[in-house]
Design a protein around this nucleic acid. Structure first.
Lengths: 187, 187
DNA sequence: GTCTATACGAAGATAGAC
DNA sequence: GTCTATCTTCGTATAGAC
């Protein structure tokens, strides 16, 4: 199906160049479909396309998280960091997170921004729920989940700027240790 | 001087809309100078202007950090988070960090990207040096410094998406506690 | 040296031919 | 239902009048 191809292509361009530099023209060309088709599939225009690209990215990450978190919070967090490491390594530090890309460009894309907020919230909830299941209090679990996502996202940006994996590794090391200590204390 | 006005205006637009949506036209208009003047002051075009905007932002933050870190790492970190909180609160969650904005848009702006990497590195070094002065080992200090910056930057993005200060507060609470425990253990 | 006017390309979006 | 051609606007950048 070409519709999914278009959304996936848009997500890929967005995580590299950001939302504004992702033109519907080029997304269509990359998917091998004419420009008009894009507006047939996405009558809401760029806002709708970007929102769907964000939701696709959210689901991919959420599915991975759900799977790995079954083995415990530490495994889920490790997989989360491994995912970003692969994105960076596989693109020579040229790609990041499309969800973040949407959130840093205040523009006329309300649907996409809403999807971005929901993605962050969904991931946070998954992580927090897993932590809570392992004895961390609800409030603390929510705080830790937010810290995990914020620091990973921020580290990915720093890695891109510095063209080095070091920031992500540093952050992962710190948070792994913090997580271990926290869970050990409550078990 | 209108040159500084142009750079400051560019930085403000960049932290709101991102680099690509920041047009030289509008920057010039906002500064009250004609379009041609901008290219007179910045013959390197948009790349040069963006790079100077990033360096200006770097210096503002670095100056604040240098001042507050004299009272200790905890005070410096608190000021760092307070700064971002003010940016978010003062713009209804519509502005973030221009340094981050540049790093997430892979485009033809090598100078600006280099300035972005240097900004992150400069802030990290300041924080790491302060931590090292208070008994934290060099390696650990560098890791913690990276974590502090990455999580603050990431939290700011989450706050923008969710139009809420909660992510930044959550991250600040976690890191304040972690910092206290780390410094107490080594003193 | 400042600024007006413009060249040139690409963006989002749509109308209408097949 | 698919796609081509086009409208309109805006981007970077520059040439040349004051």
């Amino acid at each position: 199906m070409s519709r999914q191809q278009i959304v996936a292509g848009a997500a890929d361009m967005m995580r590299r160049r950001g939302l504004n530099a992702t033109s519907i023209r080029e997304v269509a060309k990359h998917a091998g479909t004419p420009l008009g088709s894009t507006y047939h599939y996405f009558p809401g225009g760029k806002d709708q396309l970007a929102a769907e690209a964000v939701r696709l990215s959210e689901e991919i990450v959420a599915t991975l998280l759900a799977e790995k978190l079954r083995q415990g919070p530490a495994e889920g967090v490790a997989a989360f960091f491994a995912l970003w490491r692969e994105v960076l390594a596989g693109t020579e530090f040229k790609a990041g997170c499309p969800v973040l890309a949407v959130a840093v460009e205040e523009a006329d894309h309300p649907e996409a921004l809403k999807a971005s907020a929901e993605a962050f919230r969904a991931w946070s909830k998954q992580l927090a729920a897993s932590l809570a299941e392992h004895g961390v209090g609800a409030r603390r679990a929510a705080q830790l989940a937010t810290l995990l996502i914020a620091s990973a996202e921020g580290a990915v940006v720093m890695c891109r700027a510095q063209r080095s994996i070091q920031p992500l590794d540093d952050v992962a090391a710190e948070l792994t240790a913090l997580l271990e200590a926290t869970i050990a204390a409550r078990t």
